[in-house]
Each structure stands twice: as structure tokens, then as C-alpha cells.
Design a binder for these strands. Structure first.
Lengths: 145, 145
DNA sequence: TCTTGACCTTACAGTTACTGGAAGGCCCAT
DNA sequence: ATGGGCCTTCCAGTAACTGTAAGGTCAAGA
């Protein structure tokens, strides 16, 4: 199979597949003319990657998961650990977004949204109101240079 | 005020403030020695930016909001539009994350997490199970080169 | 006066996971 | 030989910073 075929079958853009080769997630062979040749195993890997990425795993997590997938002697506990950590991150992100949503919705609903300049949203951002921004409890940034 | 002062007062890292100057969100004056000098208005702007960023607005949204903030003749409807669009994006992201969370939780709970290699999470990713990945309905990527 | 240390400066590279585009080679049909 | 659709590489750009190096400035203390 050439790259276009596996792109169609895996649902990944050809460009992404080339990138995955670049970072050594897949290592297709080459034809004499330089074209990449993908085996069924390569396609399977790419499909695995597409699914893992769709679940929000980072590339590095994908690398780990792929290694575990190919290690017949793995302990499922290891996989579960990766998944647990990722679930925690997803939960943290959801919580962050929900906090933003709650705050912004409050301001949004107070805003008349008409031709006049008075705007509780801008007032909230400028710090006039209290409670202007939520504190989600985790760091947005750490120490400084 | 020097950059360290406004960094402490706004909660933004000095590095970020320099970056904001780079992209012309703030334009502090300079002392003879080259040090940036921030006015109260600059500090106010930075605090505004910090709050808007904490609510997840993009830098470009921040630029727009700041311009509206400084335009005495604005219509609050314009601000509300920016907020509405941003709320929609937050909602879409939450929905995506919740779909990922649901799928991964299902696999997670099926996984024994012990010393044995059998793992429903990996099976789900490799496509053995049905329903392996959710379809959130929006594009992850568009056309191809 | 010299030094120490905290502050400030710039410039460049790296992060994440791609995406876009240019410039060109390969292959098949007309 | 020409057109179109594939394929190749390489370079640059995205978002919003962050890290690091190399060095200038300033106030306090020995």
C-alpha cells in the first residue's frame, strides 16, 4: 500500500502519517522509486494511533501504548495506569472549562447586548466586579526566569 | 513600575509581559537604561489580559476585547458576540472531552489492571471492540495537500 | 572601590502535533 | 509529449508562551 491508501483506510491525513514516520511511530519500507510501502501491520498501527489520538492521548502516550500493545508480556496494570492518568487530565480540563464557562455565562447573561457601551463583561474583565476570575486550584504557569 | 512589579501585581510572568509587548498588546515606555516603565494604565491592561486569558479567550479575542474596552462608543452587543462565540467553543471542547472521557472510562473499567497482558483498553484501541472511538461530529482535520 | 546579588535587557531555540506550500519526481493514459 | 494524480523532500507557520544564554544596571555592603 502507498501512503494514500493507508491515509484513506486509517482516516489520517497523509501528511500526518509522514510526520509519524518522522518521529518514528511507524517505519514503512520504501520502494525502489522512494515511495513508502505500508504493510497490513503498519496500517493496523496507524489505525491504533488514530484511535488513541481521538481519545486525546498525547503522542508520547501513544508511543507507550503502542509499545505495550506490542509487548506480549505486558501487565494490563501498566496500560490502566496510562489510562488513569489521562482520565485525570481530561477531568482537570473539563473542570477548568466548566469554571470558565460558569464565570463567562454569568457575565454574559448580565450583558444587555445592545447599542449602548455599558458592559458587565468588560467590567468583569477589568476587575470592577469581584469574583471576576475563577481559581481552578492548579497552576497556569510556574516559576520564572 | 518595572516589569517585576507589574508581573507581581498582574500575576503574569515577566516573560509573558515581554511577549505581550512583542505582539503589541501593551506598549510600555522605556527608561534611559532600556528598562521598561509601566504606567497604572499599563498595569490595568495587563490585569485585564490576565483575566481574559484565564477565561480562555485567545490572544486575538483579547486584542478585540481590549479595543472594545477602550472604545467609549462601543456597543455592548459586540462584546456579547465575542463572548457568545467563545462560550460555544468552550461548550464544544467540553463535549469533546466528555465523549473521550466516557469512552475511555468504559474501557478503563473493563480492564483488570493486573499482571496479566489481556487488556480491553488496548483491544479497544486496536479496533477489536466496536464503538472504539466516539464521533463528536466535528472535523479533527480538513482537506489534504 | 570592588563585589555580590537581584534585577533588567536581547535573541534564539524549543514546546505540541501537526498543516501549508513550494519545487520537483514518478507513472499511467491519451 | 502532455496532463493529471500520485508521490517525494524541505522549509515555514501555527498558539502562546517557556527556557536558556550572554550580558547590562543598580543598590548595598566590606
Amino acid at each position: 500500500m502507498n501512503i494514500g491508501d493507508v491515509a484513506r483506510k486509517s482516516g489520517l491525513p497523509a501528511k500526518t502519517i509522514r510526520y509519524y514516520e518522522d518521529i518514528e511511530l511507524v517505519t514503512p519500507k520504501r520502494e525502489a522509486n522512494g515511495y513508502r510501502v505500508f504493510s497490513d501491520a503498519d496500517l493496523h498501527k496507524l489505525t491504533f494511533l488514530a484511535r488513541a489520538r481521538a481519545l486525546g492521548f498525547t503522542i508520547e502516550d501513544c508511543r507507550t501504548l503502542l509499545a505495550l500493545y506490542e509487548d506480549e508480556t505486558r501487565a494490563s496494570a501498566e496500560v490502566k495506569n496510562v489510562a488513569r492518568r489521562h482520565l485525570s487530565e481530561i477531568e482537570a480540563k473539563i473542570a477548568d472549562l466548566q469554571a470558565m464557562h460558569a464565570t463567562l455565562t454569568r457575565l454574559y447573561e448580565e450583558c444587555a447586548g445592545d447599542h449602548r457601551p455599558d458592559c458587565p463583561i468588560l467590567e468583569g474583565l477589568s476587575g470592577d466586579g469581584d469574583n471576576a476570575t475563577p481559581d481552578t486550584g492548579h497552576d497556569t504557569h510556574k516559576g520564572e526566569g
